[in-house]
Nucleic acid binder design. Structure first.
Lengths: 221, 221
DNA sequence: AATCTATTTTTGTTGAACAATATGGCTCTA
DNA sequence: TAGAGCCATATTGTTCAACAAAAATAGATT
């Protein structure tokens, strides 16, 4: 087993990683403008290096680059949320149908569900959300497709960004049991039923997120 | 109708566009190393600007960035081709199943098929290949999902890159009729059958490409 | 209040410089 | 001859200072 040495080897790479983290951690808020002068000084790096990191993150969808105006933390709009859930339904449900009985990702699903159940009793919603993401990431891994995995993790990062503007409380709570139910169907090798349930799950989640979103935020661009 | 002003407004953006074009046109060959000093001089731009363009294209998958070694035109390996076709089957077939009768993308499919049939008689394989790509792009657009469209066009760019190393002759020829048959099923609103046929089509295409590939190229990394 | 102009700020781009890392060739040794 | 270590070289990574170009701001004019 090789150590997955994914650590960035260049300064612009590690800078991108650091900014990515700050965005997902909520330190940089959606819509916020990131000034080259200010940020490069506060990170003690040159403007050029920072700009390279910006290009990396823009292509990932976490930053939005407006020529001659600056880079901004992406602000998921209502249409973006709809689009994200549409992509998720397409990818996740199909991945689940392509699954086979003893796929290694199944244990990842189980781990995620059990961990979520545990953390739910502690009311640790932040971590429950992470488990939920891991669960769905595991579903996608069933398709055994590297490119799909990669695009999906980007989509989930974008969605996580949308959640930043929302109250974290019960957003994930009702879904832990749903995940458990889906896992049960998978373990019973009823892949088609599992996919159908997942589809309903995602439709419901979308409606819930959208209504919460429109209550807390005005309108997306 | 607004003019889709997609033209890059910055030099690093237009540089990326220009390099992208040269890669897809075969001017830059897979595996080739792009020297910062040489390229920046031949394009009459500064190294820093070129590096920003490199970061853009690396994230698109057209270039591979190896820290401290340089950037190389991506070289699709056998495993990459397998992965690409797996992603295509997942996305395209599902998009086709999600289609509805009067979707605007259907006319795009028809245009692509008719144009391909015309160009086929002229033995213009280069353009036939482009039509084939447009046909499959149109299929994906049936899903009405911007993020899926975007990732798919990246995947197709990567595949086109793989085709650069291959003789262009009959790679697309037998598929024009297949596309026409799929279109017919779609127009007859038999979406599930169309998806099934597309799946077979892609499995066959994968086998064909792989055998051609292994005949012309040794082994991927 | 709205428009235009001038000022200021910020981004875009450049060139030179140096540090850090890989490359290639060299010698030395076994 | 094959391989290990070492040096010179080339390339990438990063910084800095400067200026051009575009956008944001403020002020003056109508």
């Amino acid at each position: 087993m090789k150590t997955d040495n994914n650590a960035p080897k260049t300064l612009n790479g590690s800078t991108a990683e650091s900014i990515r983290e700050k965005i997902l951690q909520g330190e940089f808020l959606p819509g916020q403008r990131l000034s080259e002068a200010t940020l490069s000084e506060s990170l003690s790096i040159s403007r050029n290096t920072l700009r390279e990191a910006f290009r990396l993150l823009s292509q990932e969808g976490l930053l939005k680059h407006e020529p001659n105006r600056g880079v901004f933390v992406a602000t998921p709009s209502v249409t973006a949320i709809i689009d994200i859930y549409r992509a998720r339904r397409l990818i996740e449900c199909q991945a689940l149908q392509l699954a086979y009985p003893h796929h290694p990702a199944k244990s990842l699903m189980r781990d995620a569900v059990e961990k979520a159940l545990r953390l739910q009793t502690e009311r640790n919603w932040q971590e429950v959300g992470t488990c939920n993401m891991e669960f769905h990431m595991a579903i996608v891994q069933m398709a055994d497709c590297e490119r799909i995995n990669q695009m999906f993790s980007r989509i989930m990062a974008e969605q996580r960004l949308a959640f930043c503007s929302l109250p974290p409380e019960q957003l994930h709570a009702p879904y832990v049991e749903q995940n458990a139910a889906i896992l049960e169907l998978v373990e019973a090798k009823k892949f088609t039923e599992a996919a159908a349930m997942l589809n309903d799950y995602l439709l419901l989640a979308e409606r819930s997120v959208l209504s919460t979103y429109s209550r807390y935020v005005g309108e997306g661009s």
